[in-house]
Amino acid sequence: MGKTLYVSQQDCYLCLHQELLVVKRAGAILQQAQLPHLDQILIFGHAQVTTQLIQSCLQRNIPIAYLSHMGYCYGRLQPIQRGNRALQDMQMQLTPKRKLETARQILKAKVHNCRILLLRQRRRKPQVSGEKLALLQRLHTDMDSAQSIDELMGLEGAAAASYYPTLGECLTHVGFEFTTRSRRPPRDPVNAMLSFGYQLLWNHILLLIELQGLDPYQGCLHTSHHNHPCLASDLIEEFRAPIIDSLVLWLINTGVMDPFEDFTDEVEGCLLTQSGRTKFLQAFIQRMEDIVQPSKDPVTGTEEEIPRWALVNHQVQIYRQFVGNQLPFYTPHLIR
């Protein structure tokens, strides 16, 4: 897998010089990237893209995604996809029983990873509520007996209502108070970073799904409404806490983010400023390149140290193998 180019500066001009993608503003070169080495381009806010560059990206199967300042994806330019029809047919033929069990494993992994993240924080911050940790464990166990997707989602909602306020107890810097998750609009800097980070990761997972030939509109947990790629929303769940939530904690508790300079209150809610987006994107890229040890491979039984972006791709491949009947069930990523 190649690289993702993030363009967060406003009023930029993206053009092509031979095989070099050049990002300019007011005549000055801000970024450069070799087009053959790119997997996708994410543009936040306003930018001009030349027809020559668009055509070259379509020929090379490099999608261009347009996102808001908050990271919400408006849409993507990409070539006509043939996909893997046989594999996508197998996705459509997944039985309700297999879908329910996959949804169960995904949400159990999400709650497990949230709890482990809080346990890690508790070693440094004993004020983290032991009662809330015990509740998360009970809800995790209760998911084993859930008989429907709706019942699973209800348990997940109860877990989120306990998890996010406890996550707020782990923040140490003034100006970053956080008691509840608010998405549209994000009401405070912490929610702004969580929303921005989740959208970044969601876009990465969507690309990986398409590269594996899967149908992004055929999921097990979420339903596809208004042409929503629900499989990306399924597979992001197990990675929210270990990738994005932990990154937000680090950015705040190490003093990287400034609650005044890096955020602004607008009609759309609390948004990251240009400086805030730049800091977040730099930290996100570094986090995705960090070497981690994945869960045991269900096929080979081996473990290998790989960068986080490869770990996410590894999970999409496991899902593909599950759909293709190479694996009896989907095994999500669990942190320790």
Score class of each variant (00 low, 15 high):
T278S: 11
T50L: 00
P165C: 04
L133G: 11
P126N: 01
L208Q: 15
L16Q: 10
T4R: 08
A109W: 07
C114Q: 15
I41M: 00
A232C: 13
P298H: 00
R187V: 10
P259A: 05
V22N: 02
E289N: 13
A33L: 06
P259N: 09
A159C: 08
T254K: 11
L311G: 00
G130I: 03
R122Q: 15
L281S: 06
P242D: 03
V174E: 15
D234H: 01
Y66N: 09
L201H: 08
Q81G: 09
H204L: 12
L247Y: 05
R82P: 02
A86Y: 07
L53D: 02
V256H: 10
G269Q: 03
L107A: 08
D245I: 01
H140W: 13
R336F: 03
I243C: 12
V190T: 11
H112S: 13
L119N: 11
N191V: 08
V111F: 02
Y72A: 03
H173G: 04
I116G: 07
M288S: 04
M193T: 06
V174D: 15
V23D: 04
Y198W: 01
H228N: 13
R320I: 03
L281I: 15
I285K: 10
Q317A: 07
P126Y: 00
G276D: 11
L5Q: 04
L118H: 07
P259F: 04
H46S: 14
V111A: 09
C57N: 09
P328L: 01
L21R: 01
Y13T: 04
V7Y: 06
I285T: 13
H226T: 04
I43G: 08
P63Q: 02
I54N: 02
E177D: 15
Q286A: 11
S162A: 14
I62E: 02
R308T: 04
T179M: 03
